[in-house]
Computed example of a mutant assay.
Amino acid sequence: MSTNTPEKKIISSWFEKSKQQLVMIVFSSSWSGSTHILRTYLRALIEEFPQIHKVFVDIEEQKELATEFGITKIPTTVIMKEGEVSDTLIGTVSKKKLRALIESHL
């Protein structure tokens, strides 16, 4: 993949943004039941943590982005902080555990 692809530019913008604020990227798919559960939890948490930049990536629509991050299972949540990937969570967890993960990076 060329260094100037749209995917590389998107990823670069996420890394840049993570230098100023926490970035949470959720790789998912519309057909995944566990993705729907995680999105429900995240919608509630979005209101609690408006300072986090949240991105939802449908791996069916954005295969290149999923490949760049090495996503093999969904949902996968990637936390970016200070210009790097600081945590990865694979699968669906409780809302309480997801909140604790977010708080641990703030």
Rank of each mutant, 00 (worst) to 15 (best):
M1Q: 11
M1R: 11
N4F: 11
E7G: 07
E7P: 07
K8P: 01
K8Y: 06
K9Y: 10
K9Q: 15
I10Q: 14
S13W: 08
S13F: 07
W14P: 00
K17I: 07
K17H: 04
Q20R: 12
Q20D: 14
Q20E: 13
Q21K: 07
L22V: 01
L22P: 00
V23W: 02
I25W: 04
V26Q: 15
F27L: 03
S28L: 03
S28N: 08
W31K: 06
W31R: 06
G33T: 15
G33K: 14
S34N: 12
S34Q: 12
H36C: 13
H36E: 13
H36L: 15
I37H: 08
I37F: 09
T40C: 10
Y41P: 00
R43L: 13
R43N: 14
I46H: 15
I46C: 15
I46L: 14
E47A: 10
E48F: 08
E48M: 04
F49E: 00
P50T: 05
Q51G: 04
Q51N: 09
Q51Y: 09
I52H: 00
I52T: 03
H53Y: 12
K54R: 15
V55L: 04
V55N: 04
F56R: 10
F56E: 15
F56I: 12
V57M: 06
V57N: 04
D58S: 01
I59G: 07
E60H: 07
E60N: 13
E60C: 07
Q62M: 12
Q62L: 11
K63P: 15
L65D: 02
A66N: 05
G70A: 03
I71V: 13
K73C: 09
P75W: 00
T76G: 06
T76D: 06
I79S: 02
M80S: 06
K81D: 12
K81H: 06
E82G: 07
E82R: 11
E82D: 14
E84Y: 15
E84C: 08
V85T: 09
S86T: 10
S86P: 03
D87E: 11
T88V: 13
L89M: 12
I90F: 08
I90C: 05
G91K: 03
G91E: 03
S94Y: 02
K95Y: 05
K95L: 09
K96V: 13
K96A: 11
K96C: 05
K96P: 02
K96G: 02
K97T: 15
L98N: 02
I102F: 06
I102R: 04
E103H: 00
E103A: 06
S104L: 03
H105I: 02
L106V: 01
L106I: 05
